[in-house]
Nucleic acid binder design. Structure first.
Length: 269
DNA sequence: AAAGACACCTGTCCGC
DNA sequence: TGCGGACAGGTGTCTT
């Protein structure tokens, strides 16, 4: 499910409700997520949440006693509800706050994770070697060209690799390649500086617009108040439901790296 | 080092 | 109505 815009939307929804709140209890109803939820999480009962941030698709929660690292996997979402509200079928974790609200982690496929660290989450081994954030200056055409120069893999695979740049999943990879007119199968090292510049700009604008609209809801994703994201209406090629908005020809679907790629064979060369 | 395949899990949809 | 198969927003790890 969640790519960078959905994780950012989740973060922004949580922040005002979690900062400076004290945890009164933590219920782990289903510890079998992508990795087992570590027992140390339970030591955070009575902890006060100091701050929240995002790195790649991870949500980082800093408390006065230790830190949580969350990942939403393919189908995860987080909601804030009154504590007495019953949980849904796939609610795996419930964190109750002193103010009567509780944070619920819902994840039907259980590809997500909750990890614990008492040091800086940015130094965690899953996080420390990641590529730059796409919406920062650090992600620019010179950087991408240097990454592409030695790579024969398709450009779509490369921009989805978190060691190149973080946060771009299947939807936004397809959409940004469409906006920049690049065929997803093109070998990364064969793309000119000018076209990479268009790609960098497309990535930034598509992610920014998606964040503004609260992300993309296809099935599971909801914002923390239960609302869907509205970017689905802006998708040009992903999902293949309509013709190419540019030329009217049918959108093609191919498989790359075991994932569906949607693109227009006449507009993307 | 880099590219590709596979694994993890549940739900939904489509064709027969 | 039921059943099998394909497919779904991610990514670490293993194999080539």
């Amino acid at each position: 499910m969640p790519e960078l815009p959905e994780v950012e939307t989740t973060l922004r929804g949580l922040q005002p409700h979690l900062i400076n709140r004290t945890i009164t209890s933590i219920q782990i109803k289903q510890p079998k997520l992508r990795w087992p939820v570590p027992a140390e999480i339970l030591t955070l009962q009575q902890a006060t949440i100091n701050s929240l941030s995002r790195r790649a698709k991870y949500i980082l929660m800093y408390t006065d006693q230790g830190n949580m690292i969350w990942h939403l996997g393919m189908s995860g979402s987080m909601r804030l509800l009154a504590d007495q509200q019953p949980g849904s079928k796939h609610e795996h974790i419930k964190i109750t706050l002193h103010d009567g609200f509780s944070l619920r982690y819902i994840d039907p496929r259980r590809f997500g994770a909750l990890l614990y660290t008492d040091s800086d989450p940015l130094c965690h081994k899953l996080i420390c070697d990641l590529g730059p954030e796409p919406l920062t200056e650090e992600f620019n055409t010179e950087y991408l060209q240097q990454k592409c120069a030695t790579r024969s893999s398709p450009i779509k695979t490369l921009i989805m690799d978190s060691h190149t740049v973080v946060g771009i999943g299947n939807i936004y990879a397809c959409e940004s390649l469409f906006l920049s007119g690049i065929n997803p199968r093109t070998k990364a090292c064969k793309i000119s500086f000018h076209r990479l510049e268009k790609l960098v700009n497309s990535i930034k604008s598509v992610l920014q617009q998606a964040i503004q609209l609260g992300g993309t809801t296809l099935q599971d994703f909801t914002q923390t108040d239960g609302q869907p994201g509205y970017f689905a209406q802006k998708l040009n090629v992903y999902g293949n439901k309509t013709a190419c908005p540019n030329c009217g020809k049918p959108v093609s679907r191919i498989i790359q790296a075991q994932r569906s790629t949607f693109y227009c064979t006449s507009c993307q060369k």
